[in-house]
Design a protein around this nucleic acid. Structure first.
Lengths: 294, 294
DNA sequence: CCATATTGGTGCATATACGCACCACCCAAA
DNA sequence: TTTGGGTGGTGCGTATATGCACCAATATGG
């Protein structure tokens, strides 16, 4: 029995269909189909059964799926611990960092990469919710007030938000026609909007990505609640009259306990703390745009 | 990462060499060599290292090996539980039974197989120590006084041993020249030998297999301590004068808890108990060879 | 010292698995 | 009904992996 069959079962179950599983595994769906056929005849066809809506598992297949899940977790753990033992002369680190924070410290990052040729840094901003337990990254920079308990790292300081608008937009638009840029949301309006100078202004453009909202605001498409460290350096984005920055989530630099003692990991985390601390005043909203008063 | 690589690491480590692992896995050694090469370059060569005596593991490789061992155990467990759910219309059972016991109840076994076409019985007498935890068998018949705690099943009754010799051997050989057939042993002589009529007779032929010793004794190559149920039915094998059968180990019919409730397993275990009980008098030494008195 | 057995590695012919294209099927919305 | 997007299955040419044959290197025993 090829142990990769466990992975096959797991991926097919997760994806829900052969084609989706194939896409996930980076192979053609015919390959998955044929592998499954072989597995079925090897196991006397007691794994999957065709149901009306997709693919279901037999009780026997459920047992194999449970095993596969456990194996996956064991594999992830082994990968991390294996990395912890690996050669310190050339260490690969996958860093997950929000794009906004990344662009803030990109110069420092550049210096870090140049100054540490022994560390092969791989930036990953694609996953909003990256999972260190699943070996999707080695270090994460995240803004949150509730980091996962089992991760280790440093809490830095909070970042502050404020309300912004493009200077021309604010000047040329009738305040009656102001509209907010916000995410596609359900339920009540957020507190900062209600206590803003324009609590009755409607939600205009919706965007779920914080960077997109920032860019939309900078282009003058509405009012936006954004991070100070993103908005304040932009000359034509100014804070709304009378609104003060307010504390939002804490910045954390986190890693997995298995990797804590790896020198390269420690070095990177120390650097990230220093790089962010260097911009602490900006992040905490103490460096407002000089155009503010206009 | 192909999960079968974990099995690769495990087998190479167990076997100690690439060729031995290949033999174990039923493929050519070149295949293993090439698979390992690929794995090494995938993992930056941090798994195995060549040492003076064979193949050693790096600390990173050790982590992967530990994972592989856990995966193996999970796989075995899943296999058992998967079997427990499988189609009751055609059930495969692997029965591990000592060859001696097998030949005793072979007629009954034949009837069982004929009478239960839904059960596909696979006899396995090759492993002296078969491991149910490792999915090497589903049911075992074993003579022991200390069955593994976690297995479940029935204790039947003890089998008895006695001391035997071929009739012609006993008649034509000077008792001064009698010799014992015994296993290749270390340490003290066993108690039954010391308290036998010929405690000073030397160990002649050595054989570790109980069936071989029985056959040797039946051919007249020495005295033997054997199971009553094996020796008593043989016409020219007679008990030594004045020696009474003595209790040895209990017979057990065992299976794994995961399989206990499978109907086919229950049916087989019930049959085995009945078949052995049918020969209880013979097994407990109450059917001596009628030639005994000669 | 040589003879022998065992180790891991490699070229080559072949067997196997793969991706691509296409098929039939199903279901939902137009 | 048609249309479109989804499913799983299959023939075919090709890429990959395998088995067999060798090889060199390394013990081990006579």
């Amino acid at each position: 029995m090829d142990w990769d069959n466990y992975r096959l079962i797991l991926e097919i179950h997760r994806a829900g269909s052969i084609r989706a599983a194939a896409k996930q595994m980076g192979v053609d769906h015919s390959t998955i189909s044929r592998r499954l056929s072989k597995l079925r005849q090897y196991l006397d066809d007691t794994v999957f059964e065709k149901t009306a809506d997709g693919i279901g598992l037999t009780p026997a297949g459920q047992e194999l799926l449970d095993a596969a899940r456990q194996m996956e977790m064991i594999g992830f753990t082994a990968d991390r611990r294996s990395k912890a033992h690996s050669n310190p002369e050339r260490y690969k680190i996958r860093l997950s960092i929000p794009p906004s924070v990344c662009s803030l410290i990109v110069d420092d990052l550049k210096n870090f990469v140049i100054g540490n040729p022994d560390i092969e840094l791989s930036l990953d901003s694609t996953f909003s919710r990256v999972d260190l337990d699943r070996s999707e990254a080695d270090v994460v920079v995240r803004g949150t007030d509730n980091p996962p308990d089992h991760l280790v790292g440093r809490r830095l300081f909070p970042y502050f938000l404020c309300l912004y608008g493009q200077a021309e937009y604010l000047k040329k638009t009738d305040p009656e026609d102001y509209s907010w840029i916000y995410r596609d949301y359900e339920g009540e309006k957020p507190q900062w909007l209600l206590s803003s100078p324009y609590p009755d202004a409607p939600i205009g453009i919706k965007a779920n990505d914080i960077v997109t909202r920032h860019n939309l605001a900078a282009e003058g498409l509405g009012l936006n609640c954004g991070a100070c460290f993103m908005a304040d350096p932009v000359p034509n984005l100014i804070r709304l009259e009378g609104v003060l920055p307010f504390r939002w989530e804490d910045f954390w630099v986190l890693t997995h306990p298995d990797l804590r003692k790896v020198p390269a990991i420690q070095k990177l985390m120390k650097f990230l703390s220093a790089a962010l601390t260097k911009h602490r005043d900006l992040i905490e909203g103490r460096v407002p745009n000089p155009n503010h008063g206009e």
